[in-house]
Design a binder for these strands. Structure first.
Lengths: 120, 120
DNA sequence: ATAACATATGAACAATAGCTCATATGTTAT
DNA sequence: ATAACATATGAGCTATTGTTCATATGTTAT
């Protein structure tokens, strides 16, 4: 068992052609799986998770989020940028202030399912 | 607006005490939010996503997964370790071979919700 | 015991990501 | 136009992470 070129490896493994066919039939495109991973990376940071939880309660401006989380405006703004790019939050401008809110019902479902998982 | 010590920042922000109370009442413990982020980090890599998708179809040994994904045994084994530690996969030994399978229904829900999100 | 095989793991390296700092952009009031 | 404020952003630094390589562990057959 040496490399990934599949010539002389693992001759005794239990894989069958039917399973290979099944897997290759149902597996989404590589690019989609890559995008999916990119999305979950966004959830993979506790600062961003906290921002999302805060926004469950109310739309809020950058400065307020920073105060609530005890972090700098810059750090929060950078993270909101990621969340915005992933379409997890949306925003509206009101004068100098920008209000952020959740963009999507999936956010709650995903976080809830994650919570259920770690609660076990 | 300078630091995170909240003395002379953003006096004109629209935050209200009622919202602060509401947020602080519903926000889970820091440690839980940290664990939640750790869980989503696991989903935040396309190799691990692929492994999970492969396991939707059938339990499978390390070598077979490596072959299906065109990657080395070592790389897959390292990633299975992460998935195991997060209790996303389980395994059973059968002689020399170790078969991995999904541990949990949440995995499917989380991936499906993520898919729905990026499909929009 | 020895060889062959399947899997696991530690070290090292390259790539990625989050925070800070300084500064830019955009808005409002004077 | 200028000042004050809220937010955005680029560069730099440090920490983290995925893969490779070499090797260790565990199982089976001889």
């Amino acid at each position: 068992m040496t490399d990934a070129n599949g010539v002389e490896r693992c001759e005794y493994c239990h894989i069958h052609q039917e399973i290979v066919n099944k897997v290759e039939g149902t597996m989404p495109e590589d690019e989609i799986l890559y995008d999916l991973a990119e999305l979950f990376k966004i959830f993979g940071d506790s600062t961003r998770i906290k921002i999302l939880y805060v926004l469950f309660e109310s739309e809020m401006c950058v400065c307020d989020i920073a105060k609530l989380l005890g972090m700098t405006q810059s750090a929060i703004s950078h993270q909101l940028r990621s969340l915005k790019q992933s379409k997890l939050v949306k925003y509206r401008r009101e004068g100098k202030t920008v209000f952020y809110s959740l963009a999507d019902g999936h956010v709650r479902t995903i976080l809830d399912q994650g919570m259920e998982h770690i609660a076990e």
